[in-house]
Amino acid sequence: MTELTPADQRFVAFDLDDTEREQAGLNGHTLEQLSDYLDRGRVPAEKSIDDSPDCEIALRGLERLRRVQASLLELDLKRESLRDDNWIASILDNISLEARAGREIPLAHPSPTARLVITEGAVRGILREAGDRLENILVGRCVLVGDVSVPANPITIVVDATIFSGENIPMLAERLRQAMHSALGRYTELVVAAIDITVSDLYVAPKASVPDEQNR
């Protein structure tokens, strides 16, 4: 398949088909093993690899491949990031709040044929909104615990929030609780026994967003 040029002979492991030749050229190892060795950060150290000049050449080649691959990915990502936003608009236009609407929460009306409701999704939306209006706090998951479909049935609200580091946690949590109570009063007829707020994380001051390194 491959014509062996003198350069190739220097590194016979490039032979695509012959494992024996590959091992012979790599002090008994295969490229796959060397690649796994790199994946492990070259620990625990393997003398038969570390002491072999042939392996060293191959390892350098593998590392170079990784570097070039990483810069190719970076280039591709940059190219994608420079596209206009049409593809994002098209995604958002095609998703439906329906999928995240949740349960229906009744609102009273005197007529027997009336069925007035607010969706759980909309209620979670106003709870988040109440938090987003406050500074230095971000509201995460909001869970309505209890049977919300029964009018006047007391329920509990469980909220995860993230607070700017350095802020007074109890004070901000209390402010959030009040904001949520007042929003719930305006938009729902829910009887809220308690709003439990868990500050799960300390939020670090925003920096320029680096998409790929966001994931911890």
Partner: peptide, 12 residues
């Protein structure tokens, strides 16, 4: 009329 249902799906 059997039913008139009004659903609030979003606020604001």
């Amino acid at each position: 009329v059997a039913q008139i249902a009004v659903i609030v799906a979003s606020i604001g």
